[in-house]
Amino acid sequence: MVKKIKWANSYLWLVFILLYLPIFFLIVYSFNSGDVMQGWEGFSFKHYAELFADTRIIEIVVSTLLIALLSSLIASVIGTAGALYIYNLKYALAKNIFLSLNNILLVSPDVIIGASFLILFTVMGFALGFTSVLLSHIAFSIPIVVLMVLPRLQEMNQSLVAAAKDLGANNWQMLSRVILPVISPGILAGFFMAFTYSLDDFAVTFFVTGNGFTTLSVEIYSRARQGVSLEINALSAMMFMVSLLLVLAYYMITTRTGKNKKRGTRLVLPASEGL
């Protein structure tokens, strides 16, 4: 048993090394004073200085963050509403159909989704640009939110809803004071997942961008075709740090929420026992 655990730990460490070693080299070489990744020439911040002096890339970063934030917020609202609708369906067949349609979007290749949106926007005569990218990101983010929120609804204690109804709460009061607080961790997880998916999406965005508007992933791809510059390393290193901060923020929020729930449970239990 001990040998199996050691082998499992060794395998886990090997996987982590293979995953993070390229990122480590990317970050290290972003501080290289040379212009290419063909040898270490000394420590320097010049590529970060070039990055912040590049007004075009700064505008693209702001646009990418704006697209990710707006799409994840709108997708969180629509996805939560969709999860509530699927959960409240009475017929199992209808529920399975909607779940299957939702899962199909999750497993469909991004190239197919991007090409489909391109055809749709072209047929409708819709100009490609900020709005087309935003709509596309909302569309592929909604199934992610549904997938995060629906298990929380299924785990919810139905006695809470029944108690709210017995106390005379209307539908809005039940939703805002009972259901949403219970499923808020799922909504938060869906928001962060949608944000990260939107932030690094390339395939869908590549099809629906146009009229001078682009996102970070498409811009990096365009620049990499002309030759890998260490300015891209600096930009990628900063985006990795942003992703890491998002993960830490999500971990801190969920940990704090869990602690608050435990404290609330401890405060309620003695009173209930006394009754």
Rank of each mutant, 00 (worst) to 15 (best):
I97A: 13
E231D: 09
L66H: 05
I74L: 12
M37Q: 11
D54F: 04
V145E: 02
P22N: 06
L99R: 05
I119A: 12
V161L: 12
T255C: 10
P185Y: 10
D35N: 14
L153C: 06
S198L: 11
D201G: 01
S136A: 13
A164F: 08
L248K: 00
S176N: 10
A189V: 09
R152H: 12
G264V: 10
N233P: 06
A234N: 09
L199V: 05
S116N: 02
S229C: 08
R266K: 15
K3A: 15
F126W: 09
I60M: 10
D35F: 11
M37T: 11
L66C: 10
V123K: 10
T55G: 03
T209L: 02
K262Q: 09
S33H: 07
A92M: 05
F31M: 10
S76Q: 05
S132A: 15
V107Y: 05
M193G: 00
D200T: 10
L267S: 01
G210C: 14
H137I: 12
A237V: 04
I179Q: 09
K6C: 08
V247I: 11
M37D: 11
S229W: 03
V218N: 08
I144L: 01
A249V: 10
S222V: 14
S136V: 05
K261Y: 07
I142V: 15
E219T: 12
L147A: 15
Y197E: 09
G39V: 06
T254H: 00
V161Q: 04
D54Y: 05
I232F: 07
L89F: 02
A127C: 00
S100M: 04
I179F: 07
L153R: 11
M239S: 07
R256I: 10
F195D: 00
A224T: 14
V268T: 09
L147Q: 14
F16Q: 09
F195R: 00
F121T: 01
Y20K: 01
M174Q: 01
L106M: 14
V15E: 06
L51D: 11
S132L: 15
D166W: 02
L101K: 05
S136P: 03
I17Y: 02
L269Q: 15
Y87R: 15
L118N: 14
N260E: 09
A83K: 05
T209E: 04
A234G: 11
L12C: 06
L275S: 15
I5E: 12
A237I: 02
R223F: 08
T122D: 11
L69H: 02
T205A: 09
S222G: 15
L188W: 09
Y85L: 14
I220L: 04
G212E: 14
A49H: 04
G227H: 07
V123I: 13
V61D: 04
V28I: 06
L19G: 02
V208I: 13
Q173L: 13
I179S: 05
L66A: 12
L244K: 02
A139I: 07
A162C: 00
L12N: 11
T209S: 03
Y48A: 13
F126P: 04
K261N: 08
Q158S: 03
K95Q: 00
L199T: 02
G212C: 12
S63T: 05
L51S: 07
F43V: 15
K261T: 05
S184E: 04
M174G: 00
I142A: 08
F98L: 15
S44I: 07
F16A: 13
V146P: 02
